[in-house]
Simulated scan of single mutants.
Amino acid sequence: MLIHETLVRERCFHGVPGNSKKRVLERVSEMIAEQTPDLDAEDIFSGLIGRERLGSTGIGEGIAIPHCRLENCRDSVGALVRLQEAVDFDAIDGQAVDMLFVLLVPEEATEAHLQILAALAEMFSQADVRERLRLTESADQLYQAAIDYDMEQI
């Protein structure tokens, strides 16, 4: 499964404020719920925080991929987030996080979930892709940079 199958322009957020991991996840949960009427912000936040308690989703190089399974989620839902300022995310390399890809999947979506996570990890492992995403100045540019990368993989 490719990233563009989970990500739409309306779920790309640029310049999101937040001074802590918890506050960022809370705010992003609200923003996703606004764009995805079938999902509840509290359910999203609870799922993401529950997953973080198992171990940080900060994968290094300023990137985090918070993710969880949700009961009311029918299809995989992605949100790409560029933070206003980097926050401590307990990342594996100790670096603060300024870019997130939030992934929500149906409870039963095990294989698809893993495929998307692998695709995201591959995308964010590339320094030039991280740089392209960080140079964006709007949500539209952020979305386009992610989709351009995704289309290059086809």
Rank of each mutant, 00 (worst) to 15 (best):
L7A: 02
L7I: 02
R9Y: 05
R9S: 11
E10Y: 02
R11M: 07
R11T: 15
R11H: 10
C12I: 03
F13N: 08
F13H: 11
H14E: 12
G15T: 12
V16G: 14
S20N: 12
K21R: 15
V24C: 09
V24N: 06
L25E: 12
L25Y: 09
L25S: 11
L25A: 12
R27D: 13
R27K: 15
R27G: 10
V28Q: 05
S29P: 07
M31A: 14
I32T: 08
I32R: 04
I32E: 06
A33G: 08
E34Q: 14
Q35D: 04
T36M: 09
T36K: 05
L39S: 06
D40C: 10
A41K: 14
A41E: 15
A41L: 11
A41W: 14
E42N: 12
I44E: 01
F45D: 03
S46A: 12
S46H: 13
I49F: 00
G50S: 07
R51A: 06
R51W: 06
E52I: 01
R53C: 01
R53P: 02
S56Y: 02
S56H: 04
I59Q: 07
G60K: 07
G60P: 10
G62A: 09
I63N: 04
A64M: 13
A64V: 14
I65A: 05
I65L: 15
I65G: 08
P66V: 11
H67N: 10
R69V: 00
L70T: 04
L70W: 04
C73Y: 03
D75P: 01
D75L: 06
D75V: 09
D75G: 01
S76F: 00
S76W: 00
S76G: 09
S76P: 01
S76I: 03
A79S: 14
L80N: 07
R82Y: 09
R82V: 03
R82K: 15
Q84Y: 12
A86M: 04
A86P: 15
F89G: 08
F89E: 05
D90K: 09
A91Y: 09
D93M: 13
M99G: 03
M99Q: 13
L100Q: 02
V102G: 01
L104N: 01
L104F: 04
L104A: 03
V105C: 05
E107L: 10
A109D: 09
A109T: 02
A109S: 13
T110L: 08
A112M: 06
H113A: 00
H113P: 00
H113L: 00
L114Q: 00
Q115H: 11
Q115A: 09
A119D: 00
L120K: 00
A121F: 01
A121I: 03
F124E: 04
S125K: 07
S125W: 01
Q126R: 15
Q126K: 15
A127Y: 11
A127F: 11
R130D: 08
E131I: 13
R132M: 11
R132F: 06
L133H: 08
L133D: 05
R134T: 09
L135R: 15
T136E: 09
E137V: 13
E137F: 10
S138M: 09
A139N: 12
Y143G: 03
Q144S: 08
A146N: 02
D148L: 07
D148T: 08
M151D: 05
